[in-house]
Design a protein around this nucleic acid. Structure first.
Length: 872
RNA sequence: GCCGAAGUGGCGGAACUGGUAGACGCGCUGGAUUCAAAAUCCAGUUCCUUCUGGGAGUGCGGGUUCGAUUCCCGCCUUCGGUACCA
């Protein structure tokens, strides 16, 4: 009998806070009532809070993935309670390699696996209780979505970058100019080496004209050296290669020349750089982008070549050191190498070129210390001294940067110094005080020597002077270079957006807009064809018949890279079902750009650059009013496994949120993830710690339930202390939420609940306020208690409580009294006292005598309401 | 090498503009309750110490200040980015 009673006791206690019942109840209600439907264009102020959408992998979510989602969800809910119309959507970056690799192995269509993974993700996300408006979901692999990705591609194809207006313009304006004046006057970012006048242009045949235009278009096809990954069977963008291996999979990458689509992101280097100044992103992330863009200001100088009509164009950031140039170095791939190589040196040079070619990117990276090179046998003429300076080739000069040639100043550049030192070339000092026996001096300070008319000038002034002289002589000009290369846009893959282009006479033409989307065709296998064509080469009837043309033409076989769909998805959420436009003007004008964007810092040189780039292009073309996609960016840190390692299947240390939710509930999971530490920081998961926040929720539950677990609040007017406890929390939580400091807001909740429990408070007014404060962090339990408090409308439609300063005003303050900066004791004094009165009270206090040791104090600092410090 | 961020108890972390270092939580110790356990509650918990007290203490060494985790200078360590970019 006794045990029987105990058994019931236990059941009752277990049911205390029945998170499972509460959470499933509200999940259903929220869904049925469309609680999280976002208002369309409204009178309210808008706020756009966005998470980086996930690639739905087969492994599902682990406990680290939702960290940022929880933070943005809390912020969204908090802002909604404060009267904003909040757009907080979610979707899937659903094209990508893993689904395709799986398809290759199993024959399963990637669309099927992707769909399964998405469903699994959705189930997991739904458990956590996010306030996403799922009616706005986007999937990049959905034809209704990628139709517009293809459309934007066509817009880029149909544009050129006008340096005079400093923006992208429609290609027709360029054609008009060609027809009027040729390209002589055009200031454009381009790769066209030909100069022609109007009549020449008109004389070109269609093919030639198209080829020339391709040199100007923002997206273009060209033969370029690319990162080819044989293992993945595709090319990779620079940001997808780390340390000479592929970021995904870690497979070797080699350089190969291929015909590829690229995007002229280089046209936007300066604006991408300048735009950073206007963004509220972390300094470290902005710095990563700055370095990646890699601006350097200098000059290009043409050197005559002894006995040769060509000139050698070099780029230097230190034109002032030109008198210290004792040799020239060309990249082994430089176009003049052949011509400049003398018969004597031919063998050595060829040997060297073969050697550098066979070295992989990786070897080259791992072996930067070894100095190597070969003399061509030719000499350049120094433009100011007329001296002959030998021309070498060496692989420390990169073909892809600047002009692929440098003037070597061994006293001013360590690489040149190493080279000169190794081959026994001269190293004359050109900056006063340089010890050339030790190494180069690359300081931009000091005074020039051995430099003719520059002698005695400071570096800064010498640069100005030499630029003037160079330009006067007509042998060069000021020039700015950027490290960032154009982005390769082709992937030899199946599971991506088809490029909406077809080929006629070897020239690419756009598919008509009305024929979009170009639907990804079915193929028998997801592998390259026998001829080494991409998988789309297996598709039947992969051709396009333009309107009014009786022929059909082969479509492009490459697909777009992973970053295509993610470069504009934030706009589609505003108007996901629009079939006429990528997004309507009205909606774009209301929602504008993202106010807060949450995601990992690993996308710094990839997605986050590309999505700024596309936004700027769409801005230039008049489609969007803003030219930066996200005003504020927060990089959430990683949650590591309990062992401090990365959470990964490989280490067997993955914690699944579903399990945590089963044992503690989603509210506990949410609170715990926030309580772990600052959002931007990496921090280890701690399963034990979740009991702390779970205990807190139980305490909160018991505040408003009696020992029989019956809901119980009183209607009494709260005391001053109770108001104080609540209003302290209103103030602090509001401040914390605004600055994404959710770990401290959780601790504020705990303090408030502890205080109110000490006060035995279950008064309606206080409980209601507290419940609203808690709601963004733990939506389920607060919704339940809100209902029990007698509200028929969801808590998400209520208002954040107003903070009233009066409840915090105190008449006394317990002063910490320090002697020589050490806190010794506390003394409670009225806040109304003047500094003098405080000083007198403190010195008159018996405890002070001990620390004064009979001496009289030198000085007493009184900061009213803060501290007293006595200097002895 | 260069650039950036960060170093606080046994652990995660707090201290927002220079003003009581260690909030809050985990863990640990002791106690109450219980036949017992779970759950819950109470007390303690930076280190040293000659313990109604005293001393040290926010990576290390200096400095500014009545007062420094916070500001300045120099170093060390960890993490991230980048890597012959002329």
């Amino acid at each position: 009998m006794l045990t029987f009673v105990h058994f019931f006791e236990q059941i009752k206690q277990m049911k205390d806070y029945d998170f499972e019942a509460i959470e499933s109840k509200w999940r259903e209600r929220w869904k049925a009532n469309g609680t999280y439907r976002t208002e369309e264009v409204s009178e309210k102020e808008k706020l756009y809070v966005l998470d980086m959408f996930p690639y739905p992998s087969g492994a599902g979510l682990h406990v680290g993935h939702p960290l940022g989602y929880i933070a943005s969800d809390i912020y969204s809910r908090y802002k909604k309670l404060n009267g904003y119309n909040v757009l907080h959507p979610m979707g899937y970056d659903s094209f990508g390699l893993p689904a395709e690799q799986y398809a290759i192995q199993t024959g399963q269509h990637p669309a099927i696996t992707t769909e399964q993974n998405i469903n699994r993700y959705r189930e997991q996300l739904d458990l956590i209780g996010f306030s996403y408006d799922w009616s706005r979901q986007v999937k990049t692999s959905d034809p209704s979505y990628y139709k517009w990705t293809q459309w934007i591609f066509l817009k880029l194809f149909d544009s050129w970058y006008n340096n005079t207006t400093d923006k992208a313009e429609k290609i027709e304006t360029l054609v008009a100019e060609f027809e009027k004046n040729g390209n002589q006057e055009v200031e454009a970012v381009n790769a066209c080496e030909e100069i022609f006048d109007a009549s020449t242009w008109k004389g070109f045949n269609e093919k030639k004209q198209q080829e020339i235009l391709l040199d100007y278009r923002l997206t273009y096809i060209s033969n370029s050296v690319v990162n080819w990954c044989p293992e993945l069977g595709t090319v990779l963008a620079n940001d997808e290669v780390k340390d000479g291996v592929s970021e995904r999979g870690g497979y070797p990458v080699e350089q190969r020349e291929m015909r590829q689509w690229s995007m002229r992101i280089g046209a936007y280097s300066e604006r991408l750089l300048q735009g950073l100044e206007t963004l509220d992103w972390t300094d470290s992330l902005k710095e990563i982008q700055r370095n990646w863009i890699g601006k350097s200001v200098g000059a290009s100088v043409h050197f005559d070549i002894d006995g040769n009509e060509n000139q050698l164009e070099i780029f230097t950031t230190r034109p002032d050191t030109i008198f210290g140039a004792t040799f020239m170095v060309l990249a082994p791939e430089h176009e003049l190498v052949n011509e400049l190589t003398s018969t004597d040196q031919k063998e050595e040079v060829e040997q060297y070129i073969i050697r550098t070619k066979t070295r992989t990117e990786r070897d080259r990276l791992s072996d930067v210390k070894t100095v190597s090179g070969a003399f061509t046998g030719s000499y350049a003429i120094h433009p100011f001294t007329g001296e002959k300076i030998p021309i070498w080739i060496a692989d420390y000069v990169l073909a892809g940067y600047g002009t692929g040639a440098v003037m070597a100043v061994p006293s001013g550049d360590q690489r040149d110094w190493d080279f000169a030192n190794h081959f026994g070339l001269e190293i004359p000092a050109v900056i006063e005080g340089t010890d050339v026996s030790q190494g180069a001096n690359d300081d931009k300070t000091g005074v020039l020597i051995n430099s003719s008319f520059l002698d005695g000038l400071k570096v800064k002034d010498a640069i100005k002077r030499i630029l003037f002289e160079i330009e006067k002589k007509g042998i060069g000009e000021r020039q700015t270079n950027y490290k960032m290369r154009d982005a390769v846009f082709s992937r030899q893959r199946y599971w991506g957006e088809p490029v909406p282009m077809y080929f006629k006479d070897g020239v690419p033409y756009p598919v008509a807009e009305k024929d979009l989307p170009v639907i990804l065709p079915e193929v028998d296998k997801y592998l390259p064809t026998e001829d080494g064509e991409p998988p789309l080469g297996r598709a039947e009837n992969w051709a396009y018949q333009p309107e009014g043309d009786s022929n059909s033409y082969p479509l492009e076989l490459n697909t777009m890279p992973g970053w295509a769909g993610s470069s504009w998805y934030f706009m589609r959420y505003m108007d996901p079902d629009n079939t006429d436009e990528f997004v309507s003007k009205d909606k774009l004008n209301y929602w504008k750009n993202v106010d807060v964007y949450l995601g990992g810092a690993e996308h710094a040189t990839g997605h986050l650059l590309y999505f700024r780039f596309w936004t700027k292009v769409l801005h230039d073309l008049g489609y969007v009013s803003f030219d930066e996609p996200a005003k504020k960016l927060i990089n959430q840190g990683m949650i590591l496994a309990e062992d401090g390692q990365k959470m990964s299947k490989r280490y067997g240390n993955v914690v699944n949120p579903d399990d945590i939710i089963k044992s503690f509930g989603a509210d506990s999971l949410r609170l715990h993830e926030m309580f772990l530490g600052p959002i931007e920081q990496h921090k280890p998961w701690n399963t034990k710690g979740i009991e702390g926040v779970h205990r807190f929720l139980k305490k909160y539950w018991r505040m408003v339930h009696n020992s029989n677990n019956e809901f119980s609040v009183t209607e009494e007017t709260p005391t001053k202390e109770e108001y104080k406890a609540l209003h302290k929390a209103i103030k602090k939580v509001g401040e914390d939420n605004n600055r994404f400091s959710f770990n401290t807001s959780v601790s504020t909740f705990m303090v408030a609940v502890n205080e109110l429990i000490d006060l035995k408070c279950n008064k309606r007014e206080i409980i209601e306020g507290l419940t609203i404060l808690l709601n963004p962090h733990c939506p389920y339990i607060t919704e339940e208690i809100w209902e029990k408090l007698g509200h028929s409308d969801s808590i998400v439609n209520t208002q954040w409580p107003e903070f009233n300063e009066e409840y915090l005003i105190e008449s006394n303050f317990s002063y910490p009294v320090s002697f020589n900066g050490k806190m010794r004791f506390k003394l409670e004094l009225p806040l109304a006292l003047s500094k003098e009165e405080v000083e007198n009270k403190v010195l008159g206090n018996e405890q002070s005598a001990k620390y004064l040791e009979g001496k009289s104090p030198k000085k007493v600092i009184v900061v009213p309401g803060r501290i007293v410090n006595v200097v002895v």
